[in-house]
């Protein structure tokens, strides 16, 4: 399949990119890694006269610590997130997630920012980013604003980003000492059928668990009933509570039959992987 003709613009700074978008309006789109956009253009699902390539914008490849946040620029690829020492040391669960996105070619070209903006409902990153309390910064004609990750994904292929805004940073607060994270996903296709992000923290002897479920609904789901059921339960005693809490949560999930599996199958997967992710986050056997 070939692409319908377009013009390619290659600005080197943010305001030039915004000006091009203002000039060409809805006939134009921002372009970076291309792993989602070029596929949609080839399939003629989308059509633009102008692509505004962000890859030459100075500073957009930033991946750094800024105070207590990790800042991920819009050109940072999944492969960089999987291999960068800063991510591997401070957020190993996120590095592992990135190492399992798509395949090596998708990881080498595809950016996290593009993944979030495209908002494929079966993408891995949103659930863990919600759990981590991440936010995204978007720049538009009227300046910049910050959106919590939990409010950014609005549904399949729909985000809080306006079409003329550029996602310029993903900010992840560095975890506090003693909080442990895990992300587990499973499926038979390029995207997972279900993904579960879990965190465990022992505060003054009071264990606290947090759980988000991705890929199964239109946007990441905060598993508050699981968290409530597990609150205060020591890791060694999870086996008394966790299976029932996971199954009760899974039964309520808005799963539907699709190519990833039947609704029943996906609810089963969710129960299994809620259990495994929570156990692994708490360092317990049975999490593998």
């Amino acid at each position: 399949m070939r692409l319908a003709p377009f013009q390619l613009h290659r600005p080197t700074e943010l305001h030039a990119a915004l000006a091009l978008r203002a000039q060409f309006g809805d006939d134009s789109a921002y372009y970076a890694g291309g792993t989602e956009l070029l596929l949609a253009l080839k399939a003629r699902v989308l059509r633009y006269e102008h692509l505004i390539d962000l890859k030459r914008i100075v500073g957009f490849d930033r991946l750094a610590r800024d105070g207590n946040d990790l800042v991920i620029g819009p050109l940072v690829t999944h492969l960089r997130l999987a291999t960068d020492p800063l991510i591997r040391e401070s957020l190993p669960a996120y590095a592992r997630l990135s190492d399992n996105v798509g395949n090596i070619r998708v990881r080498a070209s595809g950016t996290l920012a593009g993944n979030l903006c495209f908002s494929e409902p079966h993408a891995d990153p949103p659930a863990l980013l919600c759990l981590l309390g991440a936010s995204v910064t978007v720049h538009g004609p009227n300046g910049e604003r910050s959106v919590p990750m939990a409010e950014f994904i609005l549904g399949p292929f729909t985000t809080a980003r306006a079409d003329d805004e550029i996602l310029t940073a993903i900010r992840i607060p560095l975890p506090t000492a003693g909080e442990q994270f895990c992300y587990r996903s499973f499926g038979h296709l390029e995207y997972p059928a279900v993904g579960v992000a879990a965190a465990y923290q022992s505060q003054a002897g009071a264990p606290r668990y947090r759980v988000w479920i991705g890929c199964i609904g239109d946007n990441p789901i905060h598993a508050e009933p699981v968290e409530a059921a597990l609150a205060g339960v020591p890791p060694q005693a999870l086996s008394d509570v966790l299976p029932q809490a996971a199954e009760a949560m899974a039964a309520e999930l808005p799963a539907t039959d699709d190519i990833y599996g039947s609704a029943d199958y996906k609810r089963h997967l969710a129960a299994v992987f809620i259990g495994r992710a929570v156990l692994e986050s708490a360092g317990m056997p049975g999490g593998r």
């Binding site: 792993t35 070029l38 596929l39 090596i104 080498a108 070209s109």
Partner: peptide, 8 residues
């Protein structure tokens, strides 16, 4: 790095 030339 490996790249899918069909989608680049």
């Amino acid at each position: 790095l490996p790249v899918s030339s069909c989608t680049s």
